[in-house]
């Protein structure tokens, strides 16, 4: 039982076995060639941190290791749980001391492709992001010097770091690089939508095809959800009600432009059926509620994005749109949990 295998069906790990064809270019909006929605084969990585098997192995161990937290009980995978689509199934994350956080845990699926990370875009790369939650007192509450000491005390980690990053040692940079290398393996897999995009007319049902037409047309979804990852990596205020008393200013906390008040980064729609609840504060339990939100043109009108307006979708169009989103769920894969160094 030590080497537990997660039986939950989860998505992708291997980047080499996918039969996907890279799209020619990202669709800007509206009607784009179906092939442009296919995931590019290549997963981008920075020059100084090209993935190797041992870097991914080390990163995976760190990702699943609760000793990365001050309490030794919270790992990255506590919130980014593969059994919940690399999220946590909760409206908002829960951090140190079981205290709820203010924002939903985003999936880490396809974050390798993100040029900007976090709901408010405050991180520029996976390496830049990796230590943030570890250090944050409300999240994993682990000071980095203390973490390096813990890792250095374990022979298993000393060996892995030596093999993964020869001569670089156990440092904040190598911890971040290893975690980022593992995260870059978590990419979307072949979905019914992808099979249809490659020409298999029978891969999806008629409601999915109609839903895709709504997605690109009347629904105006492609104003923000663009390309293979179904995101423009941009920031929009879509009029979601705040849950707490204090409005979350989102991107405005990073860029003091009034138009960015309440704007948050467009999330991917890949595997979206697996990552409920939805929105930056987990306000909606179902995709049907999400569609209703957009159909009524959002709730909070102050600073609302000009892309958001009432859609007047009929019940069939709403159902079709949900069917389309459900067709973006990739092929299930099993995730093995690594044995962690004990001494």
């Amino acid at each position: 039982m030590k080497n537990k295998i997660l039986m939950a069906t989860v998505f992708a790990f291997s980047v080499t076995t996918l039969p996907l064809v890279a799209g020619e270019s990202l669709p800007a909006t509206g009607k784009a060639p179906l092939a442009s929605y296919l995931r590019p084969h290549a997963v981008p990585a920075p020059e100084d941190n090209k993935p190797t098997a041992v870097r991914v192995e080390l990163g995976k161990a760190l990702f699943f290791d609760p000793r990365l937290s001050g309490s030794n009980t919270i790992s990255c995978a506590t919130c980014h749980n593969p059994a919940f689509g690399w999220s946590d199934g909760l409206p908002t994350g829960v951090g140190h001391g079981m205290k709820p956080l203010t924002r939903a845990t985003p999936t880490i699926l396809n974050t390798a492709y993100n040029a900007i990370l976090m709901w408010d875009g405050r991180k520029k790369s996976l390496e830049d992001q990796a230590l943030g939650p570890i250090e944050a007192d409300v999240e994993m509450n682990q000071d980095i010097p203390g973490l390096l000491k813990k890792l250095d005390a374990l022979e298993g980690y000393r060996d892995l770091f030596k093999k993964a990053y020869p001569g670089e040692g156990i440092s904040p940079a190598t911890v971040a690089k290893a975690i980022a290398s593992f995260e870059r393996t978590i990419v979307s897999t072949d979905s019914p939508f992808d099979r249809w995009a490659r020409g298999d007319q029978k891969a999806v049902t008629a409601d999915v095809k109609r839903g895709f037409a709504v997605f690109e047309g009347k629904g105006n979804c492609t104003a923000c959800h663009q390309g293979f990852n179904f995101t423009d990596y941009g920031f929009h205020n879509i009029g979601v009600k705040d849950v707490g008393d204090k409005p979350d200013e989102g991107r405005y906390t990073q860029r003091k432009l009034p138009s960015l008040k309440g704007a948050f980064k467009t999330p991917t729609l890949r595997d979206v059926a697996l990552t409920a609840p939805y929105m930056r504060n987990g306000l909606y339990k179902t995709l049907e509620e999400v569609v209703d939100h957009y159909d009524r043109g959002g709730d909070l009108k102050e600073n609302l994005s000009a892309n958001i307006k009432p859609l007047n979708l009929d019940p069939q169009e709403k159902a079709d749109l949900v069917a389309f989103m459900k067709s973006l769920t990739g092929r299930p894969v099993s995730v093995t949990i690594p044995l962690l160094p004990m001494h």
Partner: peptide, 19 residues
């Protein structure tokens, strides 16, 4: 087919042209 914005926070000149 979707909205854009233009702004600058530069010392030389800062402005926000809206969307």
């Amino acid at each position: 087919a979707f909205f854009h914005n233009v702004f600058s926070l530069s010392d030389a000149q800062s402005f926000d042209l809206g969307s």
